[in-house]
Computed example of a mutant assay.
Amino acid sequence: MKRKTLIFFIVCWAFIIGSGIMYFTYATESEVITIENNQKSVENSEKEKVTIYVPNFKLTTLEKRETEIDLAQSTKDRAIKLTEKIIEVLRGEKYIKSEDITLYNVYFNDKTIYLDFSSQIKELDDNTQKSLMTIYSIVNSLTETGKFDRVKIMVNGEDGTKNLGKFYKRNTGI
Score class of each variant (00 low, 15 high):
Ile80Arg: 11
Glu29Trp: 01
Thr112Val: 15
Ile96Gly: 11
Ile80Pro: 01
Pro55Ser: 11
Val106Asp: 13
Ala72Gly: 09
Lys81Leu: 10
Lys130Gln: 14
Thr75Glu: 14
Lys40Asn: 07
Leu90Asp: 13
Tyr114Trp: 11
Leu142Ala: 04
Thr25Gln: 09
Thr102Met: 12
Thr25Ser: 12
Val106Phe: 13
Ile87Thr: 02
Ile101Arg: 12
Asn127Met: 13
Glu46Met: 00
Glu43Gln: 14
Leu90Ser: 01
Asn105Gln: 15
Glu29Gln: 13
Lys85Ala: 08
Thr128Asn: 14
Leu103Asn: 09
Thr67Glu: 01
Asp70Met: 08
Thr112Gln: 15
Thr60Val: 06
Val42Cys: 02
Ile87Trp: 04
Glu88Ala: 01
Leu82Ile: 05
Gln120Pro: 00
Glu84Cys: 01
Tyr104Phe: 14
Leu82Trp: 01
Asp110Tyr: 05
Ser131Pro: 12
Phe24Val: 08
Glu84Leu: 07
Lys130Asp: 12
Gln120Arg: 06
Lys97Ser: 13
Gln73Tyr: 08
Asn37Met: 03
Phe57Pro: 00
Asn56Trp: 10
Thr112Gly: 09
Leu132Gln: 14
Ser131Ala: 15
Ile138His: 08
Thr25Pro: 05
Ile69Ser: 04
Lys130Arg: 15
Pro55Cys: 13
Asp125Ala: 05
Ser118Ala: 05
Glu48Ala: 02
Leu142Gln: 11
Glu93His: 02
Asp125Leu: 11
Thr34Phe: 01
Ser141Cys: 00
Ala27Asn: 10
Tyr53Thr: 06
Asn38Arg: 10
Ile21His: 07
Lys81Asn: 12
Arg91Lys: 15
Lys76Asp: 09
Lys130Ile: 12
Leu115Arg: 05
Gln120Trp: 04
Val42Gln: 05
Leu82Val: 06
Tyr114Pro: 08
Ser41Tyr: 05
Ile113Leu: 12
Leu103Glu: 12
Asn44Met: 10
Leu103Gln: 04
Ile96Asn: 11
Lys76Thr: 12
Lys58Thr: 06
Val32His: 06
Phe24Gly: 07
Thr34Asp: 14
Gln39His: 08
Tyr104His: 15
Ile96Trp: 08
Ile135Ala: 08
Gln129His: 05
Asn56Arg: 06
Leu103Gly: 07
Ser74Thr: 06
Val50Tyr: 04
Lys130Leu: 15
Gln129Leu: 15
Leu115Gln: 05
Thr34Ser: 11
Ile96Tyr: 09
Ile101Gly: 10
Ala72Asp: 04
Lys85Arg: 13
Glu43Val: 07
Ile52Trp: 09
Ile135Thr: 09
Lys97Trp: 08
Tyr107His: 13
Asp126Glu: 14
Asn37Tyr: 07
Asn109Ala: 10
Ala79Phe: 02
Lys64Asn: 14
Val54Met: 04
Gly146Leu: 10
Glu36Gly: 06
Phe108Val: 14
Asp125Cys: 00
Glu66Lys: 00
Thr102Cys: 05
Ile35Phe: 03
Asp77Arg: 05
Tyr136Arg: 11
Glu29Ser: 13
Phe108Gly: 09
Val42Asp: 02
Thr51Asp: 12
Glu99Val: 03
Tyr53His: 02
Val50Pro: 05
Asn105Trp: 11
Ile35Asp: 03
Ile35Asn: 09
